[in-house]
Amino acid sequence: MAPWLSSGLVYASGLALTAGSVTLLYIVTRTFNFAVASMATIGFYTVYTGVTLFGGLPYQYYPFAFIVGSITGFICYYGLNRPLLRRQAIETTLMMSTLGYDLILLSMIQMYADFLTHTYKIFPRRVTMSLFDFELFGDRAAAFILPVIAIGFLTILHIFLTKTKFGVAMRATIENPILAGASGINSDRVYLVSWIIGGGMAALGGSFMAMAMTGTPVMGMYTIPLMFAGAILGGLGSIYGGILGGLVIGLTEYAGVFLLSQQFGPWVLGYRMGIPLFIMAATLLVFPRGLSGIPLLKIIKNFAEQKRGARA
């Protein structure tokens, strides 16, 4: 694989998970979760701590990253989101509350990085996680393993949402909270589970992204516009849309930087953030409701009908 494609795939699968987490929490609780930034960074630091202190490969610590992320989501729901949802706060208030939580988590991450430096004499402020990776088919293993993990995770999520009773209840709450409540679904538990899954997804996504970029305590802070751009590109309507949006944003960033820097020279690298934002703006101009607003089924149907008409 070309180097831009392998790191692009790693980065994009991480971004897809975080954008999916943002979308999930938005459609369930109407909360635009700023804390996804720190949750992603926490996932990275969980993996980093495991690898440096206990050895082994980064991949074996991903379950722990998921669990730690879920715990931060759990705390956020009980401490912050639940009282505000009960008060029926407006969207901006919900957004600001997660921003406050994000800043507290950020300060804790910074303190934890200081603590690691002082106690274990390691340097957690500029980490290249890909150094802990191994080689597979003449390329870095992450390029193959991480997309597979992401697809596996999404398959489990899909099965959970479509085949289990609780998953169906969750989808019912997403579709129509009042009707779901009237038919006896405990919306409180649905919110809680979505925060747990959302937090875990964000942490997992952050630990994926760290394999393609330099891991720093402010890594989530720098990439959060892209996570949001992915979610918005997906249309904030369905989890799959958000995941697709994150994937598109991540891949176009790497592909765009590669192509443009070949064309115009390396100065393009400084403006790399502009490429995904430009794509987001362009997509929103054409499809105001994001990728999930594209009437794909309708287009296929029309096409098929035209063919049939031509035959008849």
């Binding site: 509350s97 406050g100 800043l103 300060s107 910074q110 303190m111 200081d114 430096t117």
Partner: peptide, 21 residues
């Protein structure tokens, strides 16, 4: 080994949360 300057972020976050709640 922790720099207390990070408490600035804690203060900012805590103020936002306390005010909202």
């Amino acid at each position: 080994g922790i720099d207390p300057l990070w408490l600035e972020f804690t203060l900012l976050g805590a103020v936002i949360i306390i005010v909202i709640l």
